[in-house]
Every structure is written in C-alpha cells, then in structure tokens.
Design a protein around this nucleic acid. Structure first.
Lengths: 231, 231
DNA sequence: AGGACCAGTCACGTAACTGTCACATCGGGC
DNA sequence: GCCCGATGTGACAGTTACGTGACTGGTCCT
C-alpha cells in the first residue's frame, strides 16, 4: 500500500509547516496550498487521499471549498478534515453539514490530528471511496472496472487490468517480477517469472494506440516501473 | 432541503437518548425503536432516511433486521449504519456483507457518528429520491412495478425485475455474482453463483426486442455492470 | 387435478484468457 | 566489433469463464 497523500490548505506558513512536518514523520506524503484557488488546482491534478482545510482562508472560506468539491463528481469522495480556531458548537455543526468528515479545533495536539486522520482514512476505504486513479489522462475507475483515456475506452484482460491497477496505485516505484507475482497474481500461485514479461507486453500493447506504453518502463536487471517521467 | 429523518434501533435507553440528543442538535429529526418488531413497523410507515441499528437486540439481531429490509423492494434502499460493541474484524465484515453501509464500534464519539451519518447520506443521495428510474428510454416505475420503453411494456419475472431495479439504481458499477446474490436475492439465501448468469440471461432476453440488452454488460472475471456506455 | 409461471440447477459449446516456449532483439562490457 | 545475459515478441495449447437451452420441481391459481 502506497503512502497516503494529504493536502494541507492553510494560509499561515508556520502552522502549515508544523503540520506538514508531523505528517511526513508519520509517513504521509504531504503537499501544501495557501489558498483555495491553488488548493483546487492541486486537488484536480494530484487527487490527494485526504484534505486538511483551514476554516479561515484569504480568498474563500474552507467550508465553501468543501461544498464546491462535493458538488463535482470526481472530487466528491475525497474526505476532508476542517481545522478551526472557533469553538462554538454552531460552527462545528456547520462544518459537518457542509460535507467535512471531521473537524479539529485549534489548538490541537499532533497526536489528536493523526488519530483523526487515520480514522477518516479508514472510514473512506470500505465505502469504496475514491477508487478512481488518473495519471496523464489515463483513467482507471475500479468501481466500474473501466480504463479509459479521455473519450475512448481501453479493453484489458483481467490480469492486465489488475497489473495496471497495481501500477497506477504504486507509481514511481520499481517492482521485481517476483514482487509483481506476489501482489498482482497473489502469493499462493506459482508461475514462471517470465510470465510477467508477457503480461507487461500485453499491457503495453493495449496502451500503444494511445501512446501511453511509455508509462510502463523496464528497469533492466530489476523489474518494471510505472512512471510519468521518462526514463 | 428538509431535515433528514433518522431511526435509532437500540434497546438501551441511555444510549438511545444520548444519540438522539446529539442528532437532534445537529438538525436531524429522530425517532426511536427498542426492538426489531417496532422498528419494522416504523420503517414501513414513516420511511426514515437512515437507520442506526444496534448489533444486539432483544428479539432479532440487527444484522438480520438489515437483511430482511434488503429483501423487500420498498425498504432495500434505506441506508443503514450498524452500531456494534464487538471489535472483531469478522463481525465487521459480516455487518457490511449483510447490507449495512457502514458500522461504528462502541464506544464512539458523537462526532464520529455524525461524520459517518453525513458520509452515508451523501453517498445515498443520488440513488434515492423518486421511485421511477429512467435510463436510455428504459423506464422502471417502482410504485406500479412496471418496466416500459416508450409505448411498450416489458414483461419481467420477479427476480428479473429486482435485478433490473438494482442495476438501474446502481449504474456504472461492477457487481460480483456474490454481491448480486446478497443484494438482489437477499443475504441469507443460498443459491449457486451461476444462477445469477441465468437470470442475467433472462433479463437480457427480455430487453432484446428493444435492443437494450447492451445495457447489461459482462465484466469477465469480475461480474456484471449496468451501463449506458459501451464496453 | 391440471395448467401457468417461475426459480434453480445442470450440461454442453464457445470464446477469451493464461502460462509457457522458442526465437528475436537489445544493451553493456570488453 | 563480439559475446552473453536480459528482455521483447509471436505463437500455441490447456484451461477457465461465460452463454445458453433444457429439465425439474415448487407454488399459486382456477
């Protein structure tokens, strides 16, 4: 399982840095935004697993940001936690009504924040939450079991689908043939390692018409990698 | 938007009151039941938007209540959250398998409960609403139990009807044979998985004269999907 | 009792997919 | 350039998953 990615939307740099530091230590991949405009841009193109949103922001209230996100189909499932300095119950309820999954009142302990983040992430999983991954226009929607690029649909066999799904959820990392057999085929089966090559080949062939085969890269001597960057 | 109505099914009065208090504060309309019998009565005549069901109840387990509800057409779509004191993973899985949309382990914070209620309601919203569904000229009116396309009526057997209804209210998503058995046949029945294929076949055959059989799509290795987009 | 309808199962055919092999090609070290 | 191990690639055959018609037994009418 890849590290979960969290986006912090908070205008005060000091607080942002402190939170980011704590989360990185806990193994999360953290990105930051200081206003709603840049937050939305980042959300759309990097699809974080969770959002930490400050209540007060320069351009738009955090609550509004959440409401906006909930209205769009591809962002509605991203869980969000509100950070607020206000303590009035009314505001807390407002935060929940607007679609935040939880809220944390400042000042808060790093530990409390971590606990809540974990709780929210755990909760998102069984719901079958954000099971759509998108990289370079290649979109894989696990709930509908579809792979497409823009308009056109890409047909994949079951194994190629699982392979691509695994790659897309674990990008930028090299996997040996043995590891892929373990994680994509399942640990209990025995098949030749070279079989992986063949399925890689089939996956590439399916992506070729869309010039996306470059995403599946060979790392000579080590295995394969799914990456947007050229090797 | 009117206040959402929530029914709490829980035998311990103290817990019931506490939950009810919290939910009313948050703007929900709350009703209560202390056993399954009275719960079912209330569900049928006041059709709440969401159910909070305790795991252990005097007359019937909460899980059974959910299964029963899922079997009846007019109650199958009501989302339910299980409250459970048990922490074993096995039970959680059982709860989800039985048709609960989420589960909350006691003890829980009101805050967490609120968040989950929000999440479940948000998720259920698009599916809920009027009892007539229409896709590509195929119209299913659940109140009169009729399926038609334009002028002509389509005759379906009971199982085919439930299957189509389930599909139309959950489009663009793949369901395994097991999931379909659970949600369309009802969690506690045991039939062969291949039986699903036969009913899929019968449904397709009924849709064929209208060239709508393409809406019911096979996802090899995974199950079936109802979708307007070509596969 | 007889008939209509329907659910569930089975058996068989077919199309799709899988794993493996054999051979081609590549890339780095010398 | 030449060699050798690593990877790409096309073809093949066994297997699996699904589509489909038929059969059985059950239930509900009349």
């Amino acid at each position: 399982m890849t590290a979960k990615r969290i986006l912090i939307v908070e205008d005060e740099k000091a607080i942002r840095d402190m939170i980011a530091f704590g989360l990185r230590r806990a193994g999360y991949e953290v990105s930051e935004a200081e206003d709603c405009r840049s937050a939305r841009a980042q959300i759309v193109d990097s699809r974080p697993d969770l959002l930490l949103i400050d209540w007060m922001l320069p351009d738009m209230s955090g609550l509004e940001l959440i409401r906006t996100l909930r209205r769009a189909k591809d962002t509605e499932e991203i869980p969000a936690i509100m950070l607020t300095a206000k303590v009035e119950e009314q505001d807390k309820i407002g935060g929940l009504d607007g679609g935040a999954d939880d809220y944390v009142t400042k000042p808060f302990s790093p530990r409390e924040l971590l606990a809540r983040i974990q709780a929210v992430l755990r909760r998102a999983a069984p719901a079958g939450g954000s099971d759509v991954v998108e990289v370079e226009g290649l979109k894989l929607d696990d709930s509908s079991h579809r792979v497409s690029t823009g308009e056109r649909e890409i047909a994949l066999g079951p194994t190629e689908y699982r392979l691509l799904h695994f790659f897309m959820t674990h990008p930028e990392r090299v996997f040996s043939r043995g590891q892929l057999l373990d994680r994509v085929w399942g640990g209990s089966t025995y098949v030749e390692e070279r079989t992986v090559d063949v399925h890689i080949r089939r996956l590439r062939k399916a992506l070729e018409p869309f010039s996306l085969e470059r995403l599946v890269q060979t790392v000579r001597g080590s295995g394969y990698r799914f990456s947007t960057r050229e090797s």
